[in-house]
Structure formats: C-alpha cells, structure tokens
C-alpha cells in the first residue's frame, strides 16, 4: 500500500513537474474565459450564442470532443512512450513495486489528471456564468455536475484506449501524431458506416447528454455505461498485458 501510494504520487508529481501539463492547465483556464468574453462581446453584433445558464454544458461538448482528448494524448505520451525514449521507465520499475502497480499508478495519474481538468474547466465555465450575470440555479448546477461526472466516465474509456495504443510506441511525437489521426478517423468513421459508432468509444464523448434528458430510459444509460466500463477494463487490461511484457 505504501509503495502504491508512492508510485501514484510520483507519477502525479512527474506530470505536474513537466511544464507542458501546467501550461495545458493554464490554457484550460484562459480559453473558456476568452470564449465567454468574445461571445459576450460579439453577441449584440452577430447575434452569436449568449453566455447563458447552459454555457458550462455547451462548452462541455467542446471539452470532451477536442480539449480533453488532446490532454489524454499528451499525458499518455509522457507517461509511456516518452519514458521509453528517455530510458527513464526503469526508474519506476526498479522500485519495490510490481509492474501492475507501476502501470496502475500511471493510469491512475492520468485519470486524476482528467478529473482535475474537468473540475477546473467546470469551475471556470461556471465562473464565466457568474460574470455574465446568468448564474445557474440549483437544478441547473446539479445537471452540470452530473454531466461533468458522466463525461469523466467516457473520457476514462477513451484514455484506456490510448494508454493501450501508447504501449506500441517508443517515441512520444510518433504516438501523438498517430493518436490524433486515429481519433480523427474514429470521429469520421460513423459518417461512412453506422455500425462503427456503436463500437467506438470516440462516439461516446457526448454521452453526458443522455444524463441530462428525462426521456432516456435507465436501460439505455446502463447499456452505455456498461459499454464504457467494459471498454475501459478491456483496454486497461490489454495495455497491462503489453506493459508487463515490456523489456527495458
């Protein structure tokens, strides 16, 4: 237990000490504010979207489809291929931690990063509402919280896929490029064949919307949740299988 925590804290600190991640965090604060400000400024001229109570939810669509996936690629690149490239993976492996603990610590750190990013983005978007003078009421805030939690589940499934993918790469830039192409392809594929959407976690990035509706049946939510959970578990396990056999 002691070394579990040490590994997890270590990976978190390493993510934090890497400037990239901190810069990403700063952008996550700045971008929603800039968007809200420009919506607010352009709104009377263009009649563009107003910063309304649902601003955090409208923005969540952008966060989950672009921003957080980008974070996942970057963090996964740092956690796996980058460590292989700089030969620093052994530093974690030579500690009194099993491979499972090392792998678990890395994925847990990534999951924590995603959660932290969602919390950060949620708070900033809610703060934008405050400044726009359209403060969300209790019911709206509850819906927003629910949607952000649901998004975490879908982002986790996406992260599992890319953690698995990362095991095949020895350079972080190669992995980043491949991930972006793969993700874009996964986003376009449903336009060519409907069947793909049902099996691709990339098409579940906006599933939080299901949690906002009163008409969506519990069965639907359960099916979608099970899909995402099993997808996370499957790719997490496959990634572990690759990781445990890795020779450094």
């Amino acid at each position: 237990m002691h070394s579990w925590k040490a590994g997890y804290m270590g990976e978190l600190l390493l993510l934090w000490y890497r400037r990239k991640i901190a810069v990403f965090g700063i952008f996550s604060v700045v971008v929603p504010i800039l968007l809200a400000a420009s919506f607010h400024a352009l709104q009377p001229i263009l009649g563009f979207m107003a910063v309304s109570q649902s601003f955090p939810l409208t923005m969540l669509g952008i966060y989950t489809s672009v921003w957080i996936p980008l974070f996942i690629f970057m963090a996964a690149a740092d956690l796996f291929p980058q460590e292989v490239a700089s030969r620093t993976l052994k530093l974690a492996l030579l500690r009194p931690n099993s491979r499972f603990q090392v792998y678990g610590a890395k994925t847990a750190a990534l999951a924590t990063g995603i959660a932290a990013l969602l919390v950060l983005l949620g708070i900033v978007s809610l703060a934008c509402n405050l400044f726009a003078g359209t403060l969300a009421g209790f019911a709206e805030t509850a819906a927003i919280v629910k949607a952000y939690i649901a998004s975490f589940v879908s982002m986790l499934a996406l992260a599992a896929v890319f953690v698995f993918t990362a095991q095949f790469f020895k350079s972080s830039s190669g992995f980043m490029a491949f991930s972006i192409v793969l993700y874009a392809a996964a986003k376009i594929a449903p336009f060519l064949s409907s069947a793909v959407a049902a099996f691709s976690p990339a098409s579940y990035t906006d599933w939080y919307k299901l949690w906002l509706s009163q008409t969506v049946s519990a069965g639907k939510l359960t099916t979608a949740f099970l899909f995402l959970a099993s997808c996370s578990l499957l790719f997490f396990s496959l990634g572990y299988y690759k990781f445990v056999r890795k020779e450094v």
Partner: peptide
Amino acid sequence: QFEQGMRHVGCMIESADFHDFLTARQ
C-alpha cells in the same frame, strides 16, 4: 513476489538516465 524481493535492493542499471526536468533533490 517482485515487491517483496526489491524492498531491500537499491540499483543503478545501465546508463544513468533521469527525468531531466527535475532537480536532483526533487
């Protein structure tokens, strides 16, 4: 029982590689 075996082992293996964005103390 890797963890158990490694509990009392300290190593430097092959080249000395580090997360070079850290300081020695970190």
